Amino acid sequence: MDIHVASIDIATVLSDVTSVASSSAALAYWLGRESTELNVKMRKLDARLENLSNAFIQF
């Protein structure tokens, strides 16, 4: 009977580890996409500021 209880514990642990791993992977993917979008927005802002700076220099 102890063997059966141990196998349930192992199954529970594997289930929990799988759940945490998949949640972590999803979070990492989401953060990566957010980081990419933020970088694109920052590049656009940098280009706008550069254009504004050039306009003042030419003025």
Rank of each mutant, 00 (worst) to 15 (best):
M1V: 05
D2I: 10
I3C: 01
I3F: 11
I3T: 11
I3G: 03
I3M: 03
H4I: 15
V5E: 15
S7C: 06
S7K: 09
I8E: 03
I8A: 01
I8Y: 09
I8L: 06
I10C: 01
I10G: 00
A11P: 06
T12M: 10
T12V: 12
V13Q: 08
L14N: 15
S15K: 06
S15D: 13
S15F: 09
S15I: 09
D16V: 09
D16M: 13
D16F: 08
D16G: 11
D16N: 14
V17L: 05
V17W: 04
V17A: 06
V17M: 07
V17H: 02
T18G: 10
T18R: 07
S19D: 03
S19F: 00
S19T: 03
S19P: 00
S19H: 01
V20E: 05
V20N: 04
S22P: 02
S22M: 06
S22T: 08
S23P: 00
S23E: 13
S24F: 04
A25P: 02
A25E: 05
A25M: 09
A25K: 06
A26K: 04
A26T: 04
A26G: 05
L27G: 02
L27I: 03
L27P: 01
A28S: 03
A28Y: 03
W30A: 02
W30S: 02
W30V: 02
L31H: 01
L31R: 02
G32N: 03
G32M: 01
R33T: 06
E34S: 07
E34F: 01
E34H: 07
S35F: 04
T36N: 08
T36P: 00
T36S: 08
T36E: 11
E37R: 13
E37Q: 14
E37A: 11
L38T: 10
L38W: 02
L38D: 04
N39F: 01
N39E: 12
N39H: 08
V40G: 04
K41C: 05
M42L: 14
M42P: 01
M42N: 09
R43L: 11
K44V: 15
K44H: 14
K44P: 03
K44R: 15
K44C: 10
L45R: 05
D46R: 13
D46H: 11
L49R: 05
L49G: 03
E50F: 04
E50C: 07
N51K: 11
L52F: 06
S53E: 15
N54W: 07
N54F: 00
N54Y: 07
N54H: 05
F56Y: 11
F56W: 08
F56Q: 10
I57R: 07
I57C: 00
Q58R: 09
Q58F: 10
F59S: 13
F59W: 12
